[in-house]
């Protein structure tokens, strides 16, 4: 295997909520172009890890490196500028805005016109606005929402709202995409559409994906490596088939008796 750059690396990442240790000693290395899954039972601290990676929580201890650069404790929007994008477990779209506008907001940090250009509508303004509209439409095309561009975001059906979140995350021009339960609440058809969509994205952008998921069939199918956490501690990591037969993992998910019976 050729040497690939390490995109994300965490060292002894930990988070405390009051006296509760939500995440403890979380270490992971994700190589360029990999698709890594993070699984664990409810309340095991998966989303907390994502929140720390994107600066929503400031880590209690430990360090985060993105492409070798330390990003621990940075503000969220700074981290997004460094090249991490994320979606949310409970959908957080800009409901009152149109689908296209939702994606356009992600370009805000790249837009180089100022108040003067805004006020006098200089050619520069129109040029940039047209550019980001084209780019936003490209992002929508990838998730097959280009025909819904003028719809209000909250009027979309659930599955498409999830896809719109992915499109919005894609628009930030990231190196690492964090997907927090992308298939939650989806029916099997929508899930298989989503899998095709994720494959598409990987092929087109050559990006690294780190995802949390409860749908085991999806995780086993698409993830190249999996890390399992329970009560904030990493209990296993490895390839999907290793994880599927790991007694600790089965115990965490199904209880001790299941292991004895297995």
């Amino acid at each position: 295997m050729s040497e690939r750059a390490i995109v994300l690396k965490t060292e002894k990442l930990g988070m405390m909520f009051g006296g509760l240790k939500a995440v403890n000693d979380f270490n992971i290395e994700i190589l360029e172009g990999e698709l890594v899954g993070l699984i664990g039972p409810n309340g095991s601290g998966k989303t907390t890890v994502f929140n720390m990676l994107t600066g929503l929580h400031i880590p209690f201890e430990g360090e985060i490196y993105l492409m070798g650069k330390r990003i621990t404790g940075m503000k969220t929007h700074k981290i997004i500028e460094q090249g991490i994008a994320r979606t949310f477990q409970n959908i957080r779209l800009f409901g009152e805005m149109s689908v296209l506008e939702n994606v356009k907001t992600s370009f805000t940090k790249d837009v180089k016109y100022n108040l003067f250009d805004t006020m006098f509508r200089t050619p520069k303004y129109f040029q940039i606005e047209k550019d980001i509209e084209d780019k936003a439409m490209d992002c929508l095309r990838i998730v097959h929402l280009d025909d819904k561009a003028a719809f209000q975001a909250k009027s979309l059906p659930y599955g498409q709202q999830r896809k719109l979140e992915i499109a919005r995350a894609l628009a930030t021009d990231m190196k690492l995409l964090l997907l927090d339960e992308p298939a939650a609440g989806m029916n099997p058809t929508e899930t298989s559409e989503l899998i095709a969509c994720i494959y598409d994205i990987r092929k087109k952008f050559n990006i690294t994906i780190f995802l949390i998921e409860h749908d085991m069939s999806l995780v086993m199918k698409i993830c190249e490596r999996i890390q399992v956490i329970n009560f904030g501690n990493t209990i296993a990591h490895g390839f999907p088939n290793e994880i599927a037969h790991n007694p600790d993992v089965i115990e965490a998910y199904l209880g001790e008796e299941a292991v004895e019976n297995a």
Binding site: L56, T76, G95, E96, T105, T108, K109
Partner: peptide, 20 residues
């Protein structure tokens, strides 16, 4: 872009931050 940004903040400040 200013209008889009502030409308996004109105709708969901955390998501707006996470959009950069």
């Amino acid at each position: 872009k200013y209008g889009r940004a502030i409308k996004a903040i109105r709708e969901d400040e955390i998501a707006a931050n996470a959009s950069g």
